[in-house]
Amino acid sequence: MQANTLKSQDIRERIRELVEAGLRNKGVSGRLASFAIVGHDGLIRDIRAGRLVGIDKLDALFEYLGLELYFGPPRDTAPAEQMFIDGKDFAHIPLHGASLAAGGGAMNEGETVIDHLAFRRSWLTRIGVSASSARLARATGDSMMPTIHPGDMLLIDTSKDAPPDKPRSPKDTRPAPIYALLDDGAARVKRLALVDKNNLGLLSDNHTTPPEFRPISDVKIIGKVMWWGHTNKE
């Protein structure tokens, strides 16, 4: 039952992310969108509160916001380069020259692709990442240790570029999600939590690094960190 609960929670969070991005792109408020679909302001309020809404209302809302309502494995709208190894389907994921600082921030040429790494498409689908949205970068600094070490490879889903839109429930004991972000132009990797409607908390796993706080408007989300790889150095 626990696995089903978490899966349902993830679906609600993803719906919220898509709706918030759709509202921003269309330039309308949640209240206006709700009235356009159901004639009152409760629809977006329910979605933001994490309540599931009827599929007919959700379909109408997505159409209004110019979004596609689709349930199923992630689909590649612009697939990454395909390759087969021993008959298995792999995607070439670009490794950027960017260093994501688990600390004060790194200034670098983040758009330069320096290499590609092959990932099984079936594995990407299993963790909910479309190959066309996947990017790789390396971490620097120690403020995210012991979770992320200097030099670790990070797999980033650039389609998940909306900040958290509601405070976490006290009953939710999971760590806050990890994001790659630009903080005043510096590339960083941090856990993000919504403090209030205008501010984000940038959280580190290293207990010696205090939390930081930023206005949401000052932080640009690159994407959500979905996986990281660590090489043990003896």
Rank of each mutant, 00 (worst) to 15 (best):
P210C: 05
I178C: 06
A180C: 10
R135K: 10
L69G: 08
L203C: 04
G42L: 08
H96C: 09
A49P: 00
I37F: 01
I127W: 01
A193M: 10
H230W: 03
W123N: 04
P215C: 07
A101E: 10
M83I: 15
I44N: 07
D46N: 13
K57A: 15
E234Y: 07
R214D: 10
L67T: 06
A193N: 09
A187R: 02
S159K: 00
M145H: 03
A80W: 00
A186F: 04
S122R: 06
S217I: 12
L181T: 04
R31H: 05
A193I: 04
E234T: 13
S130C: 09
G42F: 01
W123F: 08
I221P: 02
A101V: 03
P146R: 02
D86N: 13
F90C: 06
I222V: 15
W228D: 13
G22E: 07
Y70L: 12
R214K: 10
D46W: 00
G128N: 07
N198K: 14
N25F: 01
A118S: 11
H149R: 09
A60T: 03
E20Q: 13
F84W: 10
N206S: 06
P164V: 12
N232G: 12
E81C: 04
K190C: 08
M107L: 14
R45E: 15
G42Q: 14
T77L: 14
M226T: 07
G223T: 07
G30A: 09
L58V: 10
G66L: 09
P146I: 05
I55L: 10
P211W: 03
P164C: 12
S169E: 11
W228R: 04
P170D: 11
